[in-house]
């Protein structure tokens, strides 16, 4: 009884502890995780994180697409940054990027998706079927097809100029930014509609009925009840649409190539043009870094907005 160590159970336990050196009820790192994580880790580190870091470095070099500086490029310090700060196209490009990404992406698409989702609630079945499928098909189309569709719709003699009574106006040429923004909203609104329809289904019916019993009209129910409940979804959608709009620059590149005269030259397009048309890869990389900075700032802003919403009721109640 006294010699507990001789007990066979205690011995095995002791041996196990000596072997593993830790408590057995705590989760421990198992070697199989390494095997499971290896492919994703190798791909992400080698072909995503490293290139992003490499691009930060390239942004401070004089790398060129062709010529002697394509092989023997060197670190040039802040030279690219000085050039960037004196580049008028760059400043205009930042403004256009914000218009495209925040204006047409975050704000435009979210509002359009929200309006569609709200209207769908009291729509006839036939109307609902038609509009949802159209919006979803528009969302599923690949960017190149959307570019062609919108090119056709807004160029001279296209459907929109004809519809508004200016058949000879080349809307795409005159208002390039407006057209590509509309095309972007057009292509993403289906996703926003799906997100908001799902969120609207989660609005508690009892609350709506209670509001009806209190004689709240449709407008009051919307602004006092539905929209506050949807606020987190609205912010989520705004963030998602911002990121997706950044990815939608293919649309602009195919439709206008940033033109005419730089009217639709958002940063991703400008970066591509600098790199592969003007052959200045180093400068293009620096522009790419600015894009990541902007998307990071926007992302933090949305997270901050979402958290400000969560903090507010607490401070009020205290």
């Amino acid at each position: 009884m006294v010699e507990l160590a001789n007990d066979p159970v205690a011995k095995t336990l002791g041996a196990l502890v000596a072997e593993n050196g830790a408590r057995l009820d705590k989760p421990r790192f198992s070697p199989s995780s390494l095997l499971l994580l290896f492919p994703a880790a190798a791909l992400l580190i080698g072909l995503f994180i490293y290139p992003v870091g490499y691009s930060v470095y390239l942004g401070f070099t004089n790398l060129q697409l062709i010529g002697p500086n394509s092989i023997h490029f060197r670190f040039t310090g802040l030279q690219n940054v000085y050039f960037l700060l004196s580049d008028h196209v760059f400043y205009r490009s930042i403004w256009l990027t914000l218009v495209f990404v925040v204006g047409s992406g975050a704000v435009g698409t979210t509002i359009l998706g929200l309006v569609i989702a709200l209207a769908l609630q009291s729509a006839l079945t036939s109307v609902r079927m038609v509009v949802t499928s159209l919006a979803i098909v528009a969302w599923t189309l690949p960017p190149a097809a959307i570019a062609i569709i919108w090119y056709a719709a807004t160029t001279q003699g296209g459907i929109f100029p004809v519809l508004f009574g200016y058949p000879h106006a080349d809307v795409l040429y005159d208002h390039a930014m407006l057209v590509v923004s509309l095309a972007n909203t057009w292509s993403l609104a289906g996703l926003a509609t799906i997100i908001f329809s799902a969120a609207l289904r989660n609005v508690p019916q009892e609350m709506l009925e209670a509001a009806k019993l209190e004689d709240a009209n449709a407008y009051q129910r919307l602004t006092r009840l539905v929209l506050p409940i949807l606020k987190p979804t609205i912010l989520t959608s705004a963030l998602l649409m911002t990121l997706l709009s950044f990815g939608n620059f293919t649309l602009i590149y195919l439709m206008t190539q940033g033109g005419p005269g730089g009217d639709s030259n958002i940063l991703p397009v400008y970066s591509y043009l600098q790199g592969f048309t003007f052959k200045k890869l180093g400068y293009a990389a620096l522009l790419g870094d600015v894009i990541v900075l902007i998307s990071g700032v926007l992302g933090i802003a949305y997270v901050w907005l979402a958290q400000a919403r969560r903090r507010a009721p607490k401070s009020n109640s205290v």
């Binding site: 992003v52 990121l243 990815g247 790419g288 990541v292 998307s295």
Partner: peptide, 10 residues
Amino acid sequence: GVPISILIVP
């Protein structure tokens, strides 16, 4: 969330 266009040059 990183815009893919940054990957093109590197």
